[in-house]
Amino acid sequence: MTDIKFEPKDYKSDQYVRWCPGCGDHAVLNCLHKAMAEVGVAPHNMAVISGIGCSSRLPYYMNTYGFHTIHGRGAAIATGVKTARPDLSVWLITGDGDCLAIGGNHFIHAVRRNVDLNIVLFNNKIYGLTKGQYSPTSDRGFVSKSSPYGTVEDPFVPAELALGARGNFFARVIDVDLKNTTEVLAASARHKGASVTEVLVNCVIFNDGIHKSIVDKEYRADRTIFLRHGEKMIFGKEGNKGLVLDGLKLKAVTIGEDGYTMDDILVHDAHEKDSTLHLMLAMMSDDMPIALGVIRDVDAPVYDEAVHQQIEEVQAKNPTRTLKDFLMKGEVWEVK
């Protein structure tokens, strides 16, 4: 952090943004610039790492340090950057194909280790850069260039994967909601440890309208619920719907009907260490609204800090400081 006041333009590079007109990635980039200005991390104290894919072009558009790496390996390289330079704010920009296919192993272990990375996962349920093949998040039966008769497999759900890897921060936003996306990205930056923010983005060329049923203003209020820590879980155009526990399951109810009152509506606790309810919220589907906002935000030991603390403790106990000291300690002999 710094006392200097930054503006979104301070994080913009001079590069022409090469995404298709109408692509949801434009909105996320705009929100990231605004979030960084809000948090106040100096551009020279940021590193933006990416793999391969449409979203992975983002480092070019940031006036920060950046590294456009190789397919699926962004999490591994970002881990190295953060471990070597824990003072930097390190961001991993990745897509559903880059992160959850070839990069799946690196992703889950970065989350499991709780490396202090801000992972932004662009999910358009398609391989866009390679021209329209189905991805690990494409729905069963999805017709694409690589599945002309429909996929015959079930998709990954990023939230389930992140929380299953013992993740401590998970959020979900939609590309057309700039205000809340900015708010969530700022929360991600402030979280110590691995944060995963899934952004539901639209690919206007190869998967146009994939999130239409929840993001269009006509449906959004009734089909999404934006969660905030400490607030009632309320949604709906009239603000008269909410979530309650019905036995061991979540249930959407209308306040004032069937005996339900505001007192029955659950209060969101993003800081609860037990992830059971967080996973239930993240996995809502069918007749339930999809959960947006920060779903889980829990403090836990951070990998890069622990590594440096361990190094300091070992060095304090060991007088060896140079390679020569190391080679000359213990038994030595001279050959004449």
Rank of each mutant, 00 (worst) to 15 (best):
Asp3His: 05
Lys9Pro: 03
Lys9Met: 06
Asp10Lys: 09
Tyr11Glu: 04
Gln15Val: 08
Tyr16Cys: 02
Cys20Ile: 03
Pro21Thr: 00
Gly22Pro: 00
Cys23Tyr: 03
His33Tyr: 14
His33Asn: 00
His44Arg: 10
Ala47Ile: 11
Val48Leu: 12
Ser56Glu: 12
Leu58Ser: 01
Pro59Ser: 06
Tyr65Trp: 05
Gly66His: 06
Gly66Leu: 10
Phe67Glu: 07
Phe67Ile: 09
His71Val: 09
Arg85His: 12
Val90Lys: 13
Trp91Asn: 10
Gly97Ala: 07
Asp98Arg: 10
Ile102Arg: 01
Gly103Lys: 06
Gly103Asn: 07
Phe107Arg: 11
Val111Met: 11
Val111Phe: 14
Arg112Lys: 14
Arg112Leu: 14
Arg113Cys: 14
Arg113His: 12
Asn114Glu: 11
Asp116Cys: 09
Asn123Leu: 03
Asn124Cys: 03
Lys125Ile: 02
Leu129Trp: 11
Thr130Val: 04
Gln133Asn: 10
Pro136Arg: 06
Gly141Asp: 01
Phe142Trp: 00
Ser146Asp: 06
Pro148Thr: 05
Pro148Arg: 02
Thr151Tyr: 01
Val152Leu: 06
Glu153Gly: 02
Asp154Trp: 01
Ala159Phe: 06
Glu160Arg: 11
Ala162Leu: 14
Ala162Ser: 15
Ala162His: 12
Gly167Tyr: 13
Ile174Thr: 08
Ile174Phe: 10
Ala187Cys: 09
Ala189Tyr: 15
Arg190Trp: 14
Thr197Cys: 08
Val199Tyr: 00
Ile205Val: 07
Phe206Ser: 08
Asp208Leu: 03
Ile210Val: 14
His211Glu: 02
Ser213Arg: 08
Ser213Cys: 01
Asp216Ile: 01
Arg220Tyr: 01
Arg228Ala: 14
His229Arg: 00
Phe235Gln: 12
Gly236Pro: 02
Lys237Asn: 08
Glu238Asn: 11
Lys241Val: 07
Leu245Ile: 11
Leu248Cys: 09
Ile255His: 11
Gly256Gln: 15
Gly259Ala: 14
Asp263Thr: 12
Leu266Arg: 06
Val267Thr: 14
Lys273His: 13
Lys273Leu: 05
Asp274Asn: 15
His278Ala: 15
Leu279Ala: 15
Met283Val: 12
Met283Cys: 15
Met283Ala: 15
Asp286Leu: 10
Met288Thr: 13
Arg296Phe: 10
Asp299Asn: 14
Asp299Trp: 03
Val302Gln: 08
Tyr303Met: 10
Asp304Tyr: 00
Val307His: 00
His308Asp: 04
Gln309Asp: 12
Gln309Ile: 00
Gln310Asp: 04
Ile311Asn: 00
Asn318Tyr: 02
Arg321Phe: 05
Thr322Arg: 03
Thr322Asp: 11
Phe326Gly: 02
Leu327Asp: 05
Glu331Asn: 06
Glu331Thr: 06
Glu334Leu: 08
Val335Lys: 10
Lys336Cys: 05
